[in-house]
Write a protein that binds this DNA or RNA. Sequence first.
DNA 1: TGATTAAATGGACGTGCGTCCACTTCATGA
DNA 2: TCATGAAGTGGACGCACGTCCATTTAATCA
Lengths: 214, 214
Amino acid sequence: MSTMSRRELVVGLNYAGRDAGSPVERSDAARNRLKVVKAARVLFEERDITSVTMEDVARAAGVGKGTLYRRFPNKGLLCQALLDEPTRLVQAEAMRLVSSSGEPLDKLGEFLGMLVRFTEENLDLLYGGNEPLCGADRLARFAHPAYDWRRWTILGLLQAAERVGELVESDLDLEYIAAAILAPLDVDFYYYQRRVQGIPQQRISDGLRSLAPS
Amino acid sequence: MSTMSRRELVVGLNYAGRDAGSPVERSDAARNRLKVVKAARVLFEERDITSVTMEDVARAAGVGKGTLYRRFPNKGLLCQALLDEPTRLVQAEAMRLVSSSGEPLDKLGEFLGMLVRFTEENLDLLYGGNEPLCGADRLARFAHPAYDWRRWTILGLLQAAERVGELVESDLDLEYIAAAILAPLDVDFYYYQRRVQGIPQQRISDGLRSLAPS
DNA sequence: TGATTAAATGGACGTGCGTCCACTTCATGA
DNA sequence: TCATGAAGTGGACGCACGTCCATTTAATCA
């Protein structure tokens, strides 16, 4: 972790925009990408995101469907592009937390709280963006760098806790646990608990923390 | 729980077929339902379920699309109908387990193992059936009686453990925990771990058990 | 048996997704 | 400045889902 700069990670996570591979982006492409993002932001704010179709976005941006899809292969990636800034922020905050001094398990709790807050604050975009991942790439979210980043961060903290002797039980499968702890943060699950069942955010935050080993 | 007979629960879970509300089913309807189920079973066995469309099923059953959709509003419910038998079995097995003698937490572990086994054995149908729940009813699975049943079973065991003094930590939000423990059993998550990451079933089973409080 | 009505049928239809590809526009370098 | 080709564009298209409704069929009762 220490050899990996913050910038590398952040760039690695910047999925939907110009990708890190191709060096240049043509001016018309850049212009249109901006138009799309702007239009999407407006539409998503004034209407239920679920009801906004990709065609709506294209039309509002004054751009063909093909153009839209070239940059944003599906609604999920479009939403992610809109979440670029908050994502960066939460990552930076997490970096600071992880490299701060303190007990690993406390940090883990704090980290989980941050993730809950992030999910809460961006719930509509996350939920709307999760919708079209139906076809072949329903599993894409698990392969996404942002997901990996979460998993590795949690795993790192758990391993640190183990090293320091903070974990009572030994022989725990920390890798599995790291992944499993993230499962209740899956958007659909979270959305259902909050918007349908009406469970308060605090309960989720506390409950999730209590799920981590100690 | 003691006042609720096994039959009531099982009937309540029999979602996709003739529902418990309407008393009769016309003979032609019954005939066609059977044709559909049979055809679906064949198609799902010989082809990747994801690639089988509802129209395929209708055609193979020699039935119109409207007819198919009248009984099985989506692919998920069709798959569930095919899982009727295994579902009954696992339920019955769970009933026996719950009402047997033994420590609640042991039972909980056992129960989670059963759920993992069920998921494993029916993974393709579950995964295929989870696919079309994209539109409005992505959240349907959480409102489904079978899901509730799992949650309540776990909650019951946790509460029993608490009563008996088996739980070290007090003040746990058992309701949240019961739901959260089920999250890693979500089909997509499970499918990804098994089929993409290649994690062995045993690891999932053990890991899930270790997630339960103790 | 014939009339009545509620349920069931099935295919045409509308919708949104995502692809495809003929055409256009931009960047480069001769 | 203009030729060249790579990148970008946009709308027509195909697919699958799920709905709708005019028609058919089964159950009931006189």
